[in-house]
Design a protein around this nucleic acid. Structure first.
Lengths: 113, 113
DNA sequence: TGACTGTATCCGCTTATCCGGTTATATCTT
DNA sequence: AAGATATAACCGGATAAGCGGATACAGTCA
């Protein structure tokens, strides 16, 4: 039960929902993508990524300087079903559309692999 | 997005998850049932019920002195799908089984309609 | 090696949340 | 109307979570 509450705690924040929505619709993103799409300072972004990582929502992969995140495929059945729901509903929200738009805009000047 | 975060905030607390789990498996319960099943003081129980009510998770029904709560059927599609998942997964957890056991024990001395 | 870049962690601060005891409100009974 | 009971609202204190700037750590390239 405690673990279940922790899983939902990670979803109980607007910023983390935006990050998950973006990861669910785009697949894998590096931290700099997320900073640009959500227009967040680096420390804030990193802190939320750490939260999502330790609560078991995302996996990270380092490639040189850059760290890439994606929604984990290793969660419990319960968690995966929730991830599916998030994937179908989050991208419909207005804020999520704006985040994706900024992400596309950033792709031009983007440097990371 | 804000509303979505608020929906999950209500699920980000172990006590409220236990209450929802109980309501999902038992249908409708009065406050005294919930106090007995979870062994919570009255003020704590009431506060969590208020949280669940204002965040749109439960409906209340007054019958004389007693107030009965049930999981709402009027939520968004997203919310209802999550409620379905909660209904299938929460009752499997150990704590939920103990809560149901205490609820059955309380049924004997229970006074409310 | 040293300069540089991307990411993570630390720090102090502010705000939100939880808790249980106390007080208020609503309803029933007589 | 008065007393009793069930629930809700309020209060003060403790804990947790949010924030962004500063600093530390990793990896790259000259």
């Amino acid at each position: 039960m405690k673990q279940t509450a922790r899983m939902f705690k990670a979803l109980a924040d607007e910023t983390r929902l935006r990050i998950l929505g973006l990861l669910l619709s785009e697949g894998e993103l590096c931290v700099c993508d997320i900073m640009a799409a959500l227009q967040l300072p680096q420390s804030t972004t990193s802190r939320h990524m750490a939260y999502l990582r330790t609560s078991g929502w995302v996996d990270d992969r380092r490639s040189g300087l850059w760290v890439h995140y994606k929604v984990t495929a290793a969660g419990s059945a319960f968690q995966q079903e929730i991830a599916n729901l998030l994937g179908t509903h989050l991208p419909d929200l207005a804020v999520a559309g704006e985040d994706r738009k900024r992400l596309v805009g950033f792709a031009a000047e983007k440097k990371c692999v």
